[in-house]
């Protein structure tokens, strides 16, 4: 359990994430009951496709919100609060402009690519053990794990746009899976990893 004394940016972002995830959960439950009571399993393919389209439309605002939260969550690791506010505003405006000129999908892809780039930078800094990163929790492995896990999430959402390109889609999917697994290992088992790494370092020193 972290013990930050005052309410932080992270706290509000987490509350926002909770709300978005709750909305996505509610849509999922609605989808399940609709699927059953409209007897979609017995319906012809066009009716099923129409249902899929409708569900995609329903969930898309919340996926967009999740992407935007991610796009703010990632740079908050490297930017101070004032610059983060400016960045969030700039990102929001740019997304609206791109959506207006080239469509929502293009805006989301750009936001995701930007997030991905920043997340790679965060991962690089975490790997180098940079103290300049803003994390709610401390520990080298934990920060590295958190960076990997969020990289996996960004990649997973980005990968959904490539589902028509089977080869690339699956390749990205496996990168996502590896990143997520490494991330969860680092995040959840950082004390164990730190102990093992410390033990190995001591052994190497003793041997050398």
């Amino acid at each position: 359990m972290a013990s930050p004394q005052k309410t932080s940016y992270d706290f509000y972002l987490i509350l926002l994430t909770v709300l978005v995830l709750a909305a996505i959960s509610a849509i999922c439950v609605y989808g399940m009951f609709y699927f059953k009571f409209a007897e979609l399993a017995r319906m012809p393919l066009p009716v099923k496709n129409a249902y899929m389209e409708r569900m995609n439309e329903l969930v898309s605002p919340f996926v967009i919100a999740l992407i935007l939260i991610l796009a703010i969550c990632v740079p908050k690791r490297i930017l101070p609060a004032v610059w983060l506010n400016r960045f969030s505003l700039a990102l929001g405006l740019t997304s609206v402009l791109i959506a207006w000129r080239w469509g929502v999908v293009a805006a989301l892809k750009i936001a995701l690519c930007l997030t991905l780039g920043l997340q790679v930078v965060v991962l690089g800094l975490a790997l180098a053990g940079s103290e300049r990163l803003n994390f709610e929790t401390k520990g080298y492995w934990l920060r590295l794990g958190s960076s990997c896990m969020h990289l996996g999430l960004v990649l997973f959402i980005l990968d959904l746009f490539f589902y028509r390109h089977r080869g690339l889609h699956l390749l990205l999917f496996w990168v996502t899976t590896i990143s997520t697994v490494l991330g969860m290992t680092g995040c959840f088992y950082s004390p164990l990893l730190a102990r093992r790494a410390g033990g190995l370092a001591r052994r190497a020193k003793g041997g050398g």
Binding site: P4, I14, A22, C28, T137
Partner: peptide, 12 residues
């Protein structure tokens, strides 16, 4: 999603 929420709120 609910499980992810649990792990996030648990930080506080």
């Amino acid at each position: 999603a609910i499980y992810s929420t649990y792990l996030h709120t648990r930080l506080y």
